[in-house]
Design a protein around this nucleic acid. Structure first.
Lengths: 155, 155
DNA sequence: TATTGTTATACTCTATAACTATA
DNA sequence: TATAGTTATAGAGTATAACAATA
């Protein structure tokens, strides 16, 4: 397949595929205790270290009050902690805890186990195609701007 | 990359990638009036024709009452309609309306437009890899069993 | 005054339990 | 009795608006 002439062509197909993929993934495993946003926040903290509450809200596309409450829930669950910023008394820096990292790993392992079962039923070449597409998926998610404001309920 | 020897190997990597992809896609566009489940139901009805309410609930991994309410909302919005089954007076068959199809198309177009912008910034080979992986994504979503019961809130 | 974060309140969507109607 | 669907009620997570504290 060569889309070099019209690179926008497959957008609808990719959108439809991603819609179904998203739904499948959400249903792949019971969410357990953590909301999707909670997992996303913990993942971000794990990837990039402590973050300000406002940054987290922007990054996740939720409002500041929603993030305040989410961080409170995470803190109550022992998965994250608030720490002050010595340079600016208004700022709250959120850190992921070891328990938070462990919860993430456990959740990923559970999902991976279920996903493995599905992957094992894919034809060889389709599995290869999926693996080959992983860098593209990584790039795509990195391209998502962090500044998108919350628009309506995020889900 | 050759995983023929140990096909389960990339499950964690794929899980992590899908976690981020899911979050990105959810944030790609304001959801507008439709919840993710609503879109999924309409898509299923569009793909496979009228369905019983119970089937929809099972297929989406939500409870029957949740589906009753969702279908009521869709009906109020003119996007779906309830019809009885002549063969069994207890059964409700849900149909997508033309307005429902239009809403789906509009939503997909909006997302595709935003996605196009991101896709256009991918290197040529990554875009190709994504397109090549589309059949695999389709297979994967088809492999998802419909019988998975609701486990906790679905999101 | 502007910025950071929290509190108060309302809304959407979901779950469990109890119920109605048909088979 | 069993099955299909609805109604009643409660809980999680989010938004907007109003507020407190720091810069």
């Amino acid at each position: 397949m060569d889309f070099s002439g019209d690179r926008d062509l497959p957008a609808i197909e990719i959108t439809t595929a991603l819609e179904r993929l998203t739904r499948m993934f959400l249903r792949l495993a019971p969410r357990g205790e953590l909301s999707l946003t909670a997992v996303s926040v913990l993942s971000l903290l794990e990837r990039s270290g402590p973050r300000r509450l406002t940054d987290l809200a922007m990054g996740e596309g939720v409002t500041q009050p929603a993030m305040t409450q989410l961080v409170s829930r995470l803190q109550d669950a022992g998965l994250a902690v608030r720490a002050g910023d010595p340079d600016d008394g208004r700022v709250v820096l959120v850190h992921v805890t070891d328990a938070g990292r462990a919860a993430l790993a456990e959740r990923r392992a559970a999902r991976a186990a279920l996903l493995s079962e599905l992957l094992s039923r894919l034809p060889e070449e389709e599995l290869d195609a999926l693996v080959t597409a992983l860098p593209a998926i990584g790039s795509l998610t990195s391209l998502m701007p962090d500044e998108r404001p919350a628009a309506g309920r995020t889900f």
